[in-house]
Design a protein around this nucleic acid. Sequence first.
DNA 1: CTGAAAGCGCTTACAG
DNA 2: CTGAAAGCGCTTACAG
Lengths: 334, 334
Amino acid sequence: MKKITIADVANQATVSKSTVSQYLNERYDYMGEETKARIKKAIEDLGYQPNIVARSLKQKSTKTIGVIVANILHTFSTEVSRSIEDVCNEEGFHTIVCNADDDPVKEKRYIEMLRAKQVDGLIIFPTGNNRELYQRMLDEKYPVVFLDRSVPDIPVSSIMLENEVASELAIDHFVEKNHRRIGLITTSIIDSITPRLERLKGYQNALKKHGIAENENYISSVAPQEVQTALDQMLGQNQPPDAILAGNDLVLMEILKYVKQKDLRIPEDLAIIGIDDVSFASFYTPTITTVAQPTFKMGKMSAELLLNKIKQNKIRDDRPDYRFKPTLMIRESV
Amino acid sequence: MKKITIADVANQATVSKSTVSQYLNERYDYMGEETKARIKKAIEDLGYQPNIVARSLKQKSTKTIGVIVANILHTFSTEVSRSIEDVCNEEGFHTIVCNADDDPVKEKRYIEMLRAKQVDGLIIFPTGNNRELYQRMLDEKYPVVFLDRSVPDIPVSSIMLENEVASELAIDHFVEKNHRRIGLITTSIIDSITPRLERLKGYQNALKKHGIAENENYISSVAPQEVQTALDQMLGQNQPPDAILAGNDLVLMEILKYVKQKDLRIPEDLAIIGIDDVSFASFYTPTITTVAQPTFKMGKMSAELLLNKIKQNKIRDDRPDYRFKPTLMIRESV
DNA sequence: CTGAAAGCGCTTACAG
DNA sequence: CTGAAAGCGCTTACAG
């Protein structure tokens, strides 16, 4: 099956390739109506579709961006990338989403592959462990936006939640409901991840604000598959916490599994708040109080920011990052 | 920031572009060790990355496939595309996932855009309403694989669940637990969708098998946002069903919302089985009996099938479709 | 063992 | 108002 090219269209319409190209790019400033009609007909007759690869090579723009999420298992990642795709679509951009799987090596490979594919820009949930690479992109003035996390000393603006506020909202609510022994469980293989650090900090500050002493046995940061053991430890203590803040959706689900298995009552035996508004929160029994991230807005903002950088070729950011406010969804688990 | 090209590398290494290209493509059959070393060094010194767009234009292969899912909101779609990506990755292919949103117009636009981008093949969850387009791809011997659904008279092989069996497993289990008034709710704007038809058929056959008369008031097919009203109607009847099979995950969630709101007991007031094994099934109260699809295997199979078609340039399928067995996950909701 | 040349399918100054 | 020519960055027969 021979592919139809612009040359075939030109022949068919008895004009030159240039003219067809002008037509395709809607530059018909001076193009004769009759010529236009002939080209239109030829394109339809032949079922011609322009080859975007060829166009990209010439124009040095693929109208495609890459998104590298740290870990696609979080609903946050899925929702944000969906919203990025929506914005891009409206602007005629395509999106290639890659999952770094919390692995800096994979992240590096994806960044390199996507750049080799000439994507026009990159939205990255940075693992944080490819500093040289990030810096190189900056030096080359390559359009990049960070999401969910920032990287110290890498001046790329990042779209982030007000993580400290997220924890604070949760702690305030716990305290209001007379809980004072409040635990925190986060998952993060990599220590220096912004949300983990900030949510921990927000938790600590909020406790202090309420005059509650911090207890290091109430704080745990482990991989998702280890949450069960962490809970065994934390709840097996003499004075166990009677409330736990789950640092993200995966932790929350692990906690719920644990609660189910041990036949604990929520909130009587254990009060729970999860950061990330999971799909089943509103119809779980009891309904689950969560701190929701504005995932849609955050995705939209990051896409717009990147597309602006791409179009205006203005790479430096006017501000370090963009923060979004979380919302406490009060339900029955506290 | 001037991009480094193969010409720069050639200069730096004082060889020709051809030789660099040979090196890049690992055709060093007769290449001198010393030449190799010089090229290697030049590439490193310059930080050269080949431009894949240029390569694609010449080689007429982008090493990218497109996936068009009918509706990304189903976990099934997400899980399957993740597994497709895994397979593709191993084979050095990239994946662009698009969401047709159950809209044939969007589906058409995506198919055309992706083909214009020269993706090497397409995995489609067909809406079913672009028959001409499907047929044209077949005529042009363009590599396509269908997933989740098949399209009558379009001989493209499709990776599908044994949908009738899925319903049958559920009905058998209901009956075993002494339910005989069994309802079915599916969502499908478009009527002729394979899974909907087959799940309905499986439901009907299974009822017959158990000597239960079919009651059309027990069957409903509506959009997700109308499930609530459908339930009001169905359960408001004189002899309402005491068990409902949810045709997919979204329906299940709507049913659970309804049950929660009306304060019904599961399974005493209403027994429930959902097709699609939702994330919270194992720790919901009660735990939810589901019919699980082997999403991972199905994604893998479809990717392998497509990559084979692409590589072997063998477009015709030896068999019409590939069916996968569902698994009943017995829990407490029946 | 390596290089010169043509070509993939477009776009874009420029000439007329 | 339209066309000839160059060029985007590669790869690939072919010649030597």
